[in-house]
C-alpha cells in the first residue's frame, strides 16, 4: 500500500507535468502593467502539483487557480509582497521558487560567497607558502638543469 499511494497520487500530476499551455488569454488582466506584474510574480510561484514548474509555465488546474488568484489580488491593489505572504501562509515557503533570505536560508544565500572566499584564501596561502619554500630552494645551474631535463625525458620515454 505504501508504494501505491504515491503512484496513484502522482498520476494526475505526471500527465500534466509537461504540457505547455500555461497562461490562457482569458485569464489575462486588461491593464498591461498589472498583467506584466502578474506574469513576473507567477514565474516565481511554484506549481505545487507538478513540483518543478512555476504556475506561469504549468498547465495544471491548480496552477490556473493560483494564476487567477494572483491576478485577482493584483487588481484588488495588493502588493507583490502581500500576495507572496498570502500564498506562503497557506502553502508554506515551498511555494516560492525564490527562497526568502532569512535565518534558515542563510547558508543557501551566503554559501557561494563563503566557498569563493575560502577558495581565494586557500589560493593566497598556497602562493605564500610556495614563495617561502621557493626562497629555501637552491637554484640549479644551467648545466644541472639541462641534465635534469635529459633524465626526466629518458624516464618518460622508458615509462
Amino acid at each position: 500500500m505504501r508504494l501505491i499511494r504515491p503512484m496513484l497520487f502522482g498520476l494526475a500530476a505526471l500527465l500534466t507535468a509537461f504540457a505547455a499551455a500555461a497562461v490562457q488569454p482569458d485569464e489575462m488582466l486588461k491593464d498591461p502593467a498589472q498583467e506584466s506584474r502578474a506574469r513576473a510574480l507567477s514565474a516565481e510561484i511554484r506549481c505545487l502539483v507538478c513540483q518543478n514548474q512555476s504556475i506561469d509555465d504549468s498547465d495544471a488546474s491548480l496552477a490556473r487557480d493560483l494564476r487567477l488568484l494572483v491576478r485577482d489580488q493584483i487588481s484588488q491593489g495588493r502588493s507583490d509582497g502581500e500576495i507572496r505572504d498570502f500564498l506562503v501562509e497557506r502553502y508554506g515557503a515551498f511555494v516560492l521558487l525564490d527562497p526568502p533570505f532569512r535565518g534558515s536560508t542563510l547558508v543557501l544565500w551566503l554559501g557561494p560567497a563563503i566557498v569563493l572566499l575560502a577558495g581565494a584564501a586557500g589560493l593566497a596561502i598556497y602562493f605564500r607558502s610556495r614563495r617561502r619554500s621557493a626562497a629555501d630552494a637552491v637554484a640549479l645551474s644551467d648545466d644541472e638543469r639541462a641534465r635534469l631535463e635529459r633524465l626526466l625525458d629518458d624516464r618518460d620515454r622508458r615509462a
Binding site: 505545487l48 491548480l62 487557480d65 497557506r90 508554506g92
Partner: peptide
Amino acid sequence: GIEWGVYG
C-alpha cells in the same frame, strides 16, 4: 481549497 492549502 486555497485557504486550506489543498494541492491535490
